[in-house]
């Protein structure tokens, strides 16, 4: 089951760290880092059904915004 309720222990810190992780990278470097990060997080989550739900949610939310 995908958690969509607030779950971050330190939301501001985690978000700032995500932005800082990209510092000094060009756009291609940032995209590649994001790809690695997604893969690492995917493995941490592990459950295919949860991942499927997360991907669906990301796609649908983005499509609404666009």
């Amino acid at each position: 089951m995908l958690i969509t309720t607030p779950n971050l222990t330190r939301p501001d810190e985690s978000y700032a760290r995500l932005i800082a992780t990209h510092e000094g990278l060009d756009e291609a470097g940032s995209h590649a880092l994001n790809a690695r990060l997604i893969l690492i997080l995917m493995n941490h989550i592990g459950d295919d059904a949860v991942l499927a739900e997360a991907m669906r949610l990301a796609r649908e939310t983005g499509t609404e915004a666009a």
Binding site: A32, A35, R36, I38, L39, I40
Partner: peptide, 10 residues
């Protein structure tokens, strides 16, 4: 290709 190469890097 970006994801493919990210997998290979990891």
């Amino acid at each position: 290709k970006m994801f493919r190469n990210a997998v290979l890097t990891l």
